[in-house]
Structures are given as C-alpha cells and as structure tokens.
Design a protein around this nucleic acid. Structure first.
Lengths: 221, 221
DNA sequence: TATATCTTACTGACCGGTCAGTTACTTAAA
DNA sequence: TTTAAGTAACTGACCGGTCAGTAAGATATA
C-alpha cells in the first residue's frame, strides 16, 4: 500500500503576492494598533493577522514606527480629501451643506476603526513629532479650513451669525471626534445609551443653534 | 593633618518618610505617565523623579498598573466633587451657574497635567477594564448628571429650551475636554493660535446659544 | 510540452536590549 | 538593639529587528 503523504495536487504553503501585501499589512496594523496602542502592539500579531511572517513586514516597511505612520496616513487623508471635494462641488444653501457635511463626517468617524485612529494619534503624538506635524497640517488644519469655508458661505448669505467666533470651526470637530470615541469605547458600560443617530441629531441641534442667525426650534432636516 | 573625609555632622543619604512618599510618587507618576503614556513610562523614571529607588515604589504600590490607577483616581475625583459641591450650594439663575461651572471646568482641564490625564485614560481604557469602569462611573456619569441638573434648572426656570436633547449634557464636556487637549498638545505648531480665554469664550458662546430659550447676541458675561 | 535554471518573496529561528518585578542587603531612627 | 524604610543589583520574560535559508513561480531552453 502506498503511503498517503504527498497528495497528487500539492497546495503551496504561501503565495507570492507582492502587490497585495502592503494593503493587507496596513489593514492588519490598523486593527492591532487600534486595539493595543502603539507600544503594546506586537509586530508578530500584525504579521499573523496579515497572513505573513514577521520578516515580511520588513520587506515593505522600515520599522514599526514607519508602519504606524503609513497606516494613519493611508486611512485618514482620503477622508479629508472626500470632504473637500464634497464642499467644492456643492450647490445650495450653506445650512444644508453644513448639515450634510456633518452627516458625512459623522458617518466616517463613528466607526470603531476610525475612532481608534483618532484616539491613537491623540495619544501617540508626543512620541512621533513627524506624525504630529503631518496630522496637524493634513488633517486638523485642512478640516478646520474646510469647515470655516462653509461657515463663511453661510455668513455671507446671511444664514449664519455675522459675529461667529474663530473657535466655531474647532468646536464642532472637537465635539464630533470625542463623541465618536465615547460612543465606541464606552458603549458597553453606558446605562443611558444614545444611538449614533441620536448623537448626530444632538450635535446638529446644538451646533446649528449656535451658528444660525435666526435659529428655529424643531427637528434638523 | 587629619583627612577631611567623614565630617563631624554626617548627613544621611536618605530619610525615612513613609507618610510623604505616596503623594510624591503619585506626583511623579502623573508627570511620567502623562509624558510617556502607560506602556512607555519606566518605573525607573518615576522613582528617580520621586527621589526614591525603584524598589521603594513597590513598598507603596503593588504594580505599575496599580500605581497608574491610583494616580488617576487621586487626581480626578476631587475635581468632580468640587464641581458637585459648587452646583449644590449655588444660588442664582441657571445661566450664571452654567457659565461659572464651565469656567471652573475649563480652569481645571486646560492645564497640561490634567489634559494629559484625560488623554491617558482615553487611550488606556481598553487595557484596564477596572479603571474604565471606575472612570466611567465616577467621572463621566457624575459629570454628565451634574451638568444635566444644571440644564434641568434652566429648563424649569424658562431660561433654557424645553426641547433640549439628551445629548446636550454630553456635547459640552466632549467639546471642552478635546479643546483642552488640542490647546495643550498642538500649541506649538498651530499658526492660528487662540488663547485659552478665547477658547473658553468660544465654548460658552456656542453652547449658550445652543441651549438658551431666547438667545441674545453679544459677549457672554 | 517538459524541465532546468534563476530570481526574489517569504519564512522563522535567533540575538540583544529593555524593563517590570524580586531579593539580599544597608541604614535611619524609635 | 530592633525593625521597618529604603537601596541597588539581579532575573527572566518579552519583543523589535536581522538574516541565512527556503520555496514559489517566472523564464529560458530543449
């Protein structure tokens, strides 16, 4: 009798997929860094989740730090660009634009994977000056300017208060990002849970009241 | 000639100060954890800053994790209690109470040492379920209820909108905490810096507009 | 079409540094 | 003299980063 080893069609233990690897590694890194934070995250875990060995990580990324930076960049920049594109092409009242922009921002940042990134960046900034610089310029500043442009439109059209403070374009994203983090991370222990939609409506309700020239009561949209 | 070594009055190399040590260690831990985050922080550094050796830490705290938890507890709970005491004893319009409470909260959380703690907690929650539970119950929930009670007073007196959303008592602290963190950590690289006072006025301006029944334009106080 | 040759994506054992926690000893001070 | 506060050398687990070796699979040749 012939032994059963060596089946007729041999399955390779791994495949060469140099084009797919970087994205897969970034996706794995997003999960592991998001769950563990930078310092606790083990590259061994990132590798396992990406379906490769630890050595392979180093074929595509110089170091743990580089991997972290590239992951943040790859995940965040497209969102900001999408927001800018939306505002650039929007036709209509500033109020509606603001409402829709806030909805889209909320839809982006309320997902745990995204909330993890904003939290990560916030907590690791101090250790990665280069990342901090990049994040501040390409995310915070661009986001702030984007929102300010929407507010400016509304002021020009008389929809928003002429005496808006410079803080307005910061307060909104601050409230949104932190609300998203709280929704994600305290979800399990909150006895007075709000749904994501309730939070969104609450944000819009407060902020519109805060900026509109002639606020009216009642539902937002 | 007599050699100069061994002066007549010998200074002890160290003193036994069992009552003072814990607080000194907590203070050192606040700085080091605040600067480095939990995982990067070295107990060696905490010990050096506290003026003791590493072994001494273990005379007063079971582990790195315990030290971290105790530090957060010791620094945060008094602030919450102070806010509660202030609201409990306040006589006057709800609007003034709200303004003054926000001022005091801002005065507390805008300091880097405090902003570091809120950031720390946010980023380490996942790794310390016990701390998360404690923080949520003793800080977030208590803070939320405190603010809600102020809002309720205003609604009852007709100063605030009767249709306030449940989100209102969360949005304000979210905006404040995140604004404080941003003020602290991006201070160096922001080309459009606002002063702490400008941020406070901006927060009050937005939020009062958002909650008042008959908002009026103009400066806050 | 078959197979020999070659390139390179990929593996995984290993090394060296780091650091939380321990312990054997020292010393302040009651 | 006693004892508890404090020290500092030590241990062992852990993990980022390396590199010698392996095998997938492309290409050349018959």
């Amino acid at each position: 009798m012939v032994p059963a080893r060596r089946p007729t069609v041999r399955q390779p233990r791994w495949h060469r997929r140099p084009n797919a690897r970087p994205e897969e590694i970034l996706a794995a890194a997003q999960v592991v860094f998001g769950e563990q934070g930078f310092a606790r995250a083990k590259l061994e875990d990132v590798a396992r989740r990406a379906g490769v060995s630890k050595g392979t990580l180093y074929l595509y990324f110089d170091s743990k730090e580089t991997l972290f930076r590239e992951m943040v960049r790859a995940r965040i920049v497209p969102s900001v660009a999408a927001g800018e594109e939306f505002v650039r092409t929007y036709q209509g009242p500033a109020r509606d634009l603001l409402v829709e922009l806030v909805r889209r921002m909320w839809d982006t940042i309320r997902h745990p994977a995204m909330a993890s990134i904003t939290r990560l960046v916030q907590s690791e900034l101090h250790n990665f000056p280069e990342l901090a610089r990049f994040y501040f310029d390409e995310v915070i500043l661009r986001g702030r300017r984007l929102l300010q442009s929407v507010l400016d439109r509304g002021v020009a059209s008389g929809e928003f208060r002429a005496d808006l403070q410079r803080f307005a374009c910061r307060g909104l994203p601050h409230m949104m990002v932190f609300s998203a983090q709280t929704q994600c991370f305290f979800h399990a222990m909150d006895p007075e849970l709000l749904t994501d939609d309730q939070v969104l409506e609450g944000i819009l309700d407060l902020f519109l009241r805060g900026v509109e020239a002639r606020p009216v009561a009642g539902p937002v949209s």
